[in-house]
């Protein structure tokens, strides 16, 4: 059962990722991205990372994928459906990716026999203690980064039209 679930999630993730990269229609690619992120959430659940599973669905699927869909709808044109969506250098890029993949697999082969020694435990309590204990400083810094991103998004998406209105 565990193996079956793993192969289902891995298959969904990788096929959807291929769709993200290869589909010509960017809207379809963005929808595939949502599916791929859901597959990754399933893999997190298999790994016993329950809090990561929840935050993956809340932040990635519910936030980032939807945001990307919005921008695709706002900044797209109909001519994209007929023009080429990949650049001319895709064969060397595919070669680089294939070589990287093969060497990563060779490197990872030493972990072939490593299996889990104990059943997974709920992680939320331990994560909360860690984030407000040993990792309190990075935790506060990350809130600063989020604030900066918020301000940056507002600054960049403001139009000159808005500024004229403000002056008037």
């Amino acid at each position: 059962m565990e193996q079956f679930a793993f192969y289902v999630f891995a298959g969904v993730t990788l096929l959807a990722a291929l769709g993200v990269v290869l589909l010509r229609n960017v809207l379809h690619a963005a929808l595939m991205l949502g599916l791929c992120l859901l597959g990754v959430a399933g893999i997190f659940a298999q790994l016993g990372a329950d809090f990561l599973f929840a935050s993956q669905i809340l932040i990635y699927v519910g936030g980032i994928a939807v945001l990307i869909l919005f921008v695709v709808l706002l900044a797209g044109r109909a001519s994209e459906l007929i023009t080429r969506q990949t650049n001319k250098l895709w064969p060397p890029a595919a070669f680089v990716c294939g070589v990287t993949f093969v060497f990563l697999l060779r490197y990872y082969r030493s972990f072939n026999g490593t299996s889990a020694s104990s059943a997974p435990k709920p992680t939320t309590f331990a994560l909360g203690k860690l984030l407000l204990g040993d990792l309190a400083l990075p935790f506060e810094l990350i809130s600063l980064i989020l604030l900066a991103a918020l301000a940056g998004a507002i600054v960049f998406s403001r139009t000159e039209h808005d500024e004229e209105e403000r002056k008037a």
């Binding site: 993200v20 990269v21 960017v26 690619a29 963005a30 990307i68 921008v71 695709v72 900044a75 994209e80 080429r84 969506q85 990949t86 650049n87 250098l89 895709w90 890029a93 595919a94 680089v96 990716c97």
Partner: peptide
């Protein structure tokens, strides 16, 4: 590496 579209 290969997408022309920035969102891609």
């Amino acid at each position: 590496l290969t997408r022309r579209n920035v969102i891609g």
